[in-house]
Write a protein that binds this DNA or RNA. Structure first.
Length: 600
RNA sequence: GGCCCCAUCGUCUAGCCCGGUCUAGGACACCUCCCUUUCACGGAGGUAACACGGGUUCAAAUCCCGUUGGGGUCACCA
């Protein structure tokens, strides 16, 4: 179970200026870390996300495959944080997704320390703390003439891109100008503190990418231009950091999303220039929404925008989002509402937010092993018509040769079905344990209102109709409401009590229940079945439905005997009386019954 | 648009590499019926796909070419 203990960045980070400046680049020692290779043929994979509070399901699958591949072969799995983007520094302190990884059962041998995972002697596992290392290798490249300083401003580059576009040509950075600047001039400009990046001098010639999943592809000569490997702020770009770290950390297999496929060419030329080994690559197919759009954390906001636009909503309902935030959000389509705000707004709009992050699925009552199982099925399958398996099986069986090349659409219905199956396969005791844990973390009000024995009864009555751990809490709110505050669905009252003639049976049942001495599910069952035998030709529904409506406010609840038993006699009688009064107040006749609006 | 990749039921996929056993298998969803105190579960059936066009071959979902369609990528983001 995840706790409130947010993973935090390790203390003692060097300040950026301290190690990212031009000076430190020039004076950096030539340290070429040689990793202590444990065994020569150990398989090492890594998951290398940028910092974030939440783990996206796509990232979760990448991590799962990397983990399974290495662990199933006696290898190591590394977690590395790619925090080289200072513009996202507000997020960089947030590596909350570590708890999501733990929850899924994906542990890492090396990386940030969290729970029992992490550590390792090839750190830091935060790229922002490895600037000295990158600078060392950057210097090598510059000294060898394989990289050079470039002083173009973003505006100049932008203009060049625009011009190329206007001409209808694909834009490629033309490096000759920058490369022809005299060494002394470069030195002088650097001393003056001019903003500069380092670009890699990409060799000409086609580049052949070998991929274990996609096969091989040839990128024609000239496609890869002189890309930036060190930004003006002194941080390396992704391409450079990834290549250096994978080498130094001994990564043998790189499993990552297919969107990185074209980047591989850049990484390969860099590896050649640096004299590095080349890992084996496997690019995983992407995961999409059912409608074919890319699954994104912005999907929640997208849905809320549509819902509020449909309702022509000009301001947020009271108590959901404050006016300023709402206005800003309406004005900026790329802005994301804070999660709590988004959830309050969704609740008041009556829409439910799509689950995108691993934590969303956890909160919706999905089991971690089911999520892993299902995620693995998106892009991979073990064959033999086998679909249900655990992570241990995945470890043993996962292989790159069975990864498909086509993108998958994430099918929530199938996930739900899998979760239901897993829940049904449990014993009552197992289910109760999980239900209690879920209730404690997501629905504390249930746990305080219900006694232990009431909760156990509810769990056992809900088990067989639960598709998620969330269902029993979502469907049975009526149990914990004060009797006088129970909302009634008037359509049900009208249909079952008024026009359906349930009122009489309800009244009769009330009298019998009031006299019942042993208030437990079994006794209630005896009583009601006896009543049905004698009065409704054995049709239990004739009395069960009126009771259900009276006691729950609607037509859906756990088995009526359990429901009444959990509620207790005084609540049951009070609610029946309320329902009876309500029914008596309704105008008779079919017209009234069919067109009355719902109350409350 | 340039470059790269991909293409089996609505969806996830098996089969393809090593052509015949594929009148294409499974799962989810959907439809019908059964069970039933509501909801759900469960049981029994059913609808449903090799994108298209050319080759190669005695024989192609499987090999080749093209077309169409989809995706990825073209940042001082990763």
């Amino acid at each position: 179970m995840p706790t409130e203990s947010e993973p935090r960045l390790r203390a003692g980070r060097k300040s950026i200026r301290e190690c990212a400046g031009t000076q430190s680049l020039q004076s950096a020692a030539y340290l070429f870390q040689t990793p202590t290779m444990t065994q020569p043929n150990t398989i090492v994979t890594r998951f290398a996300p940028s910092p974030s509070g939440y783990l996206h399901v796509g990232g979760a699958r990448t991590a799962l495959f990397g983990w399974a591949y290495a662990k199933g072969r006696g290898g190591r799995f590394i977690l590395r944080i790619e925090d080289t983007d200072q513009k996202r520094s507000s997020e960089s302190a947030s590596i909350g997704f570590l708890k999501d990884l733990c929850w899924l059962g994906i542990g890492w041998d090396e990386g940030p320390e969290f729970e029992s995972f992490g550590g390792g002697d090839r750190g830091s596992y935060f790229q922002s703390e490895r600037l000295d290392i990158y600078n060392t290798h950057l210097t090598r490249l510059i000294d060898a003439g394989q990289a050079y300083w470039a002083f173009d401003t973003p505006a100049e580059l932008d203009a060049q891109r625009q011009a190329a576009k206007a001409r209808g040509n694909p834009y490629r950075y033309e490096g000759t100008t920058a490369r022809n600047i005299a060494k002394e001039t470069v030195q002088q400009w650097l001393t003056e503190g001019r903003a500069a990046v380092i670009r890699f001098h990409t060799p000409t010639g086609p580049i052949v990418i070998e991929d274990e999943i996609l096969g091989s592809a040839t990128i024609p000569a000239g496609e890869v231009d002189d890309f930036v490997i060190r930004k003006a702020d002194g941080f390396p770009t992704y391409h450079f950091a990834v290549v250096v770290d994978d080498e130094l950390m001994g990564v043998t297999h790189v499993l990552r999303a297919q969107e990185h496929f074209n980047n591989t060419a850049k990484h390969m030329v860099l590896q050649d220039a640096l004299g590095f080994r080349r890992p084996i690559y496997g690019h995983l197919p992407l995961i999409f929404n059912p409608d074919g759009s890319k699954m994104s954390k912005r999907d929640k906001d997208k849905l809320l925008r549509k819902a509020s636009a449909d309702r022509k909503m000009e301001q947020a309902p009271a108590g959901t989002v404050d006016a300023a935030t709402f206005a800003a959000w309406r004005g900026d389509k790329t802005m994301q509402l804070p999660l709590a705000d988004a959830e309050r707004l969704a609740a008041s709009l009556g829409v439910s937010l799509p689950e995108i992050n691993v934590d969303d699925f956890r909160r919706s009552g999905y089991l971690p092993q089911v999520l892993c199982n299902f995620l693995a099925l998106n892009g991979w399958s073990p064959g033999n018509n086998l679909e249900k398996f655990d992570n241990e099986f995945l470890q043993r069986t996962f292989d790159l040769s069975r990864v498909v090349k086509t993108p998958a659409k994430f099918d929530r219905m199938k996930l739900l079905a899998f979760n239901c199956d897993a829940l049904q396969a449990m014993t009552a005791a197992e289910f109760t344990v999980l239900a209690r844990a879920h209730g404690l973390s997501e629905h504390p009000e249930f746990m305080t209102r219900l006694s232990e024995s009431q909760f156990v009864q509810l769990a056992s009555a809900s088990h067989e109709r639960s598709k998620t751990l969330e269902d029993m809490f979502k469907a049975n709110r009526f149990l914990i409401l004060p009797d006088a505050e129970l909302p009634y669905d008037m359509k049900s009252v009208l249909k079952v009590l008024v026009s359906g003639g349930g009122e009489a049976h309800l009244r009769a049942a009330r009298d019998l229940l009031a006299k019942l001495s042993n208030w437990d599910a079994h006794s209630i069952e005896q009583l009601l079945k006896g009543y049905a035998e004698a009065n409704t030709a054995g049709e239990l529904g004739k009395v069960a439905q009126p009771l259900r409506v009276a006691v729950s406010g609607g037509t859906v609840s756990p088995p009526i005997f359990d429901t009444l038993a959990i509620l207790g006699s005084s609540s049951v009688l009070a609610r029946i009386d309320r329902a009876l009064t309500m029914a008596a107040a309704q105008p008779r006749g079919t017209e009234a019954a069919t067109q009355s609006p719902r109350a409350e």
